[in-house]
């Protein structure tokens, strides 16, 4: 599935240290008010959705906290760069910035944020982490299917078919360094692998912390 939004091209993980270039609308005050005109509202949703996805892609955010006060999705894995501490804190600040433009002192209300998320969900680009209306949301700047395809392609390319590896190895190991899915959230990886399992291309085994996967 192609990226439906005409946002700036997705930055690669290497550029994640640079700050996110916000689109023009981000500094347009009415952008933070729910529009009443239906067409304008639709355009607004489209733009917000694109912004959220682009933003998460830029910083490789997999789980987004809506309340904005800082829980950042990447805290389950040790984050993009293996150094945990400072980087994580930087990201905390970043997510509030997404819905709150301090420069023009405008903020998107939580209800409106949820509307954007719902819009993304319809699109298959977001999902609440615990089903209902929780605070944490998966932002699928790549859907599990896409991740699965990436992993499968990598397995194919490196001739790993039939081999067994741990999940940790898959996303943090040196072998996948430079791959897109390197540093992928464990839960999201599981979702992606489950896609492969359904297709009969892989099998997952093991306990909570030490799961392995075998590719066929």
């Amino acid at each position: 599935m192609s990226n439906p939004t005409p946002t700036p091209p997705p930055p690669t993980s290497s550029s994640s240290t640079t700050s996110f270039p916000f689109p023009r609308e981000y500094s347009f005050p009415p952008f933070f008010t729910r529009q009443t005109n239906l067409t304008t509202h639709h355009a607004q949703l489209v733009k917000w959705a694109a912004l959220v996805v682009a933003y998460c892609r830029h910083y490789r955010i997999f789980k987004l906290a809506l309340s904005g006060t800082g829980t950042v999705a990447t805290n389950t894995t040790t984050s993009i760069t293996t150094t945990a501490g400072g980087d994580q804190q930087q990201q905390q600040r970043d997510t509030t910035e997404l819905f709150h433009n301090r420069r023009i002192n405008r903020r998107l209300s939580l209800a409106d944020i949820r509307e954007v998320i719902d819009f993304l969900r319809k699109d298959g680009r977001a999902e609440y982490v615990n089903g209902g209306g929780g605070d944490l949301v998966w932002i699928y700047w790549r859907t599990p299917e896409e991740w699965a395809a990436l992993v499968e392609a990598w397995v194919e390319a490196t001739g790993q078919r039939g081999s067994v590896m741990t999940l940790y190895e898959l996303v943090e190991g040196d072998a996948t360094l430079g791959e897109e899915f390197h540093g992928l959230d464990q839960d999201l990886l599981l979702k992606a692998l489950n896609v492969l399992v359904k297709r009969g291309k892989a099998q997952i085994f093991g306990q909570e912390d030490s799961r392995g996967v075998k590719f066929f």
Binding site: R24, E25, P30, H42, A43, K47
Partner: peptide
Amino acid sequence: LCREEGIEGLKFWENFIDTGEGKGYKDP
């Protein structure tokens, strides 16, 4: 036009939200 509700009340702006890009958008 588009609206902005803020502490200064309801303001109207030129519509920079719906600048036509949205029209190309289609439901997947």
